[in-house]
Design a protein around this nucleic acid. Structure first.
Length: 568
DNA sequence: TAGAAGACTTGTATTTAACAGC
DNA sequence: GCTGTTAAATACAAGTCTTCTA
């Protein structure tokens, strides 16, 4: 769990981040009146998941070719072929691993006769299939307004029927009420299983969870559920096992639900409690740097990294997944020690792939004792050995914290400036947590557009200034009510233009600074929303300017309970 | 008690809806 | 009203941490 806090005092935006592991905390007696028997609900009723539509066979004029010859595929293998055909202009399909995995899985689903003929992916020609789907997408785009409206209404009906459940008597929104459709697995980074066939889920694969005595959802015609259970120690409504990694998947509630909201609240309360102990935890791990036990030294340094850099814990991973690491799973090859670098002493250079194969690159000056310890941990090891070989994320008291404070301030700000300040604080957190995104494809273009707008606005301002001057002169020469009004009017116009310019410039700054940073994750999962709500109230910033509809729903608990003098 | 299985949160990519500018 | 951009919503993979089981 990662936690952070956003403190925004008088005209000042300040974030404090706290990232730590829960076992350490849950052993403390901080539970906020949470039921100890693990009951998550008393009654639960729902309509089961919504299945994706059955496969629609291709029309006869859309032909698959093998070795240049038309080849009619059976329904099952045709469907799988369409998965690949749809992805043809995606980078994935150029990757060897993807192709290999796809082709292996595809062949497994083929009939004997198909398998006899289709032996090489390179001889397969999906282009007609691809074109067919491109065309279909185009047609969908060109549908009339009425058709689109009808489609929308159909969708709304389904959401109405399947998108809600009753939990303890309250009607709650479900997060993902659709069963995932079949397709090709798209792992992130260099995932060894990319391209494998994600099979169609049948009702017979699905476990339903609801309360005893509730109306049990009916399986689709001619089918039955794998199992119906009544376990109120878990929060999911339905589950199945996906065939790629063999992991369970769940249908759960939307973040706007009471159940999720209370859990979220509890999370931030835990963070709040941690704040009281951060100092002592820091003293502890610093003293561990000189421990005579190697295990303690490693733990002390690992904790320091997590505290200082907001690294993830770094659990052990299964094989057959992309090679990514977190703090505890760092290997010797992921860091380089520099006694001196860029005029700084005791610098550690990090370079590794973290969650979702996002690169973490950072050069960090550290305390001398940390540096010496790292050198010790690396002695007589190969590059692919674990840096922290004596600890793992479940070793005792894995206490991990992070605290960062960035301060941004200004006096007498407009709402726009306040929002920029907020976003900057938000951004400082995202940068620390390495929440990166690829620069949007249209970034340069839209930047240029903004640039032009600003130029235009400046020209307008020049013009307005001249006109104002003229009006003033005219008024001086021949004062009248009319001329006086004109001056006032021109002043007003100029002022408004100047405000608009400022707004545009702020917008541009924000955009530029946000180029490769994703704010969403930290806003949604790390910032205590109560701090944001209090800040909005205090500074008269409408909450809608900070949180969109979804976010307001998710943080309804915070919006309801927080007044302007809330302190984290 | 360690390793596997299970449950739940976090995070990026993709899809869809809303909006601005013509 | 149309079209291209941007923001919101959704999808689902990939983490973390808990609980079960041999």
């Amino acid at each position: 769990y990662h936690f952070l806090k956003l403190l925004i005092s008088q005209h000042t935006a300040t974030f404090t981040i706290i990232r730590f592991t829960l076992p350490y905390l849950s052993k403390q007696r901080w539970e906020e009146g949470k039921s100890s028997d693990g009951q998550k609900w008393t009654t639960l009723e729902h309509n089961g998941p919504l299945f994706p539509p059955e496969y629609e066979p291709l029309p006869n004029n859309v032909v698959f070719y093998y070795s240049g010859e038309a080849f009619k595929l059976g329904l099952a293998s045709e469907e799988i072929a369409t998965f690949y055909a749809k992805m043809l202009d995606h980078e994935y399909t150029t990757k060897e691993v993807f192709q290999k995995n796809f082709f292996n899985d595809w062949r497994e689903e083929m009939t004997e006769d198909e398998r006899k003929v289709i032996k090489k992916l390179s001889k397969c020609n999906f282009s007609e299939l691809h074109a067919y789907f491109v065309n279909k997408a185009e047609e969908k785009k060109n549908m009339t307004k009425e058709e689109k409206q009808a489609l929308k209404e159909d969708n709304a009906k389904l959401t109405e029927q399947y998108g809600f459940c009753f939990l303890d008597g309250h009607r709650e929104k479900i997060g993902n009420f659709r069963v995932e459709p079949p397709g090709l697995f798209r792992g992130r980074g260099e995932h060894p299983k990319m391209g494998k066939l994600k099979k169609r889920i049948q009702p017979e694969d699905i476990t339903i969870n609801c309360s005893k005595g509730s109306r049990i959802p009916g399986p689709p015609q001619g089918h039955k559920w794998r199992k119906v259970q009544h376990d109120n120690t878990v929060t999911w409504l339905a589950s199945w096992v996906e065939n790629i990694q063999g992991h369970p998947k769940y249908i759960m509630l939307n973040p706007s639900s009471k159940l999720k909201g209370e859990k979220d609240w509890q999370k931030y309360e835990t963070a709040r409690n941690l704040k009281l102990r951060v100092d002592s935890i820091r003293r502890q791990y610093q003293s561990d740097w000189s421990s005579h036990e190697m295990r303690n030294r490693q733990r002390g340094v690992a904790l320091y990294f997590i505290d200082k850099l907001a690294l993830r814990a770094g659990n052990e991973k299964e094989d057959d997944t992309a090679d990514t690491v977190g703090c505890c799973s760092l290997r010797v090859e992921h860091i380089t020690l520099h006694k001196e670098l860029d005029g700084k002493e005791w610098v550690v250079e990090f370079d590794f792939l973290g969650k979702d194969s996002i690169r973490y690159y950072n050069k960090v000056p550290v305390e001398k004792r940390v540096f010496k310890n790292l050198k010790l941990f690396m002695e007589n090891k190969d590059p692919d050995d674990d840096l922290f070989d004596r600890i793992n994320t479940s070793s005792d008291s894995s206490q991990m914290t992070v605290l960062l404070i960035t301060s941004l301030s200004a006096e007498d700000m407009t709402v726009e400036e306040k929002i920029l300040a907020y976003n900057r604080a938000n951004r400082a957190v995202a940068i620390l947590c390495n929440h990166q995104r690829a620069a949007p494809k249209t970034f340069e273009k839209s930047m240029q557009l903004l640039q032009e707008k600003i130029k235009k606005k400046k020209e307008q301002i020049e013009l307005a200034k001249r006109e104002l001057k003229e009006a003033k002169n005219a008024h001086r020469e021949r004062p009248s009510d009319k001329s006086k009004n004109l001056v006032a009017k021109k002043e007003k116009v100029l002022k408004r233009l100047q405000e608009q310019l400022k707004k545009l410039q702020l917008q541009m700054t924000d955009k530029e600074e946000n180029k490769v940073i994703a704010l969403g994750t930290s806003k949604l999962n790390y910032l205590d929303p109560r701090i944001t709500v209090a800040w909005c109230k205090k500074h008269k910033v409408p909450i809608e300017k900070i949180y969109n509809k979804t976010q307001r729903d998710k943080f309804a608990w915070a919006i309801d309970m927080t007044d302007e003098d809330f302190e984290f």
